[in-house]
């Protein structure tokens, strides 16, 4: 039992920062996304005073979609739902890779080609 815990902990520690970033983004937007409308923006071009950023509304769109409001999601930004799929697939890829390539599981499962 202890061994499993240790293995899980070490492999989770090796999950790259990028996977944690996307996970945090999805969780954060799922919890606070739509509530932020009109209060705060993460859009850096807007904060810098530019207008017409292509990505604006994406956060709200993801937030709506995660709460099941697909119409609201499409209204905010048409890429919200594809973005969720992409984020999740990227998180899964990164997590699987981190346990197969060097560093993950202390290299025990390195996909070294079998020898003849």
């Amino acid at each position: 039992m202890n061994g499993i815990h240790h293995k899980l902990r070490t492999s989770l520690l090796h999950v790259p920062l990028e996977a944690w970033t996307w996970t945090a983004a999805l969780v954060g937007l799922g919890i606070w996304g739509p509530a932020l409308e009109g209060h705060a923006t993460f859009c850096i071009p807007t904060l810098l005073g530019f207008e017409g950023c292509w990505g604006c509304g994406l956060g709200r769109s993801i937030g709506h979609a995660l709460r099941g409001d697909l119409a609201g999601s499409l209204e905010a930004h048409w890429l919200g739902i594809p973005a969720i799929v992409l984020f999740i697939s990227r998180i899964v890829t990164l997590t699987i890779r981190s346990t197969t390539f060097a560093g993950g599981s202390h290299g025990q499962h390195l996909p070294i080609p079998a020898r003849h």
């Binding site: 790259p16 990028e18 292509w54 990505g55 604006c56 992409l86």
Partner: peptide, 30 residues
């Protein structure tokens, strides 16, 4: 997929671009 997403959203309003800036070594190594 991510390339298209970045392309169509201005790098997730620059936020994705900044993340990649921090993470560029990891992207290459990966």
């Amino acid at each position: 997929g991510f390339g298209l997403l970045y392309l169509l959203t201005g790098g997730l309003c620059f936020i994705g671009t900044i993340i990649d800036l921090v993470n560029y070594r990891k992207i290459a190594a990966d």
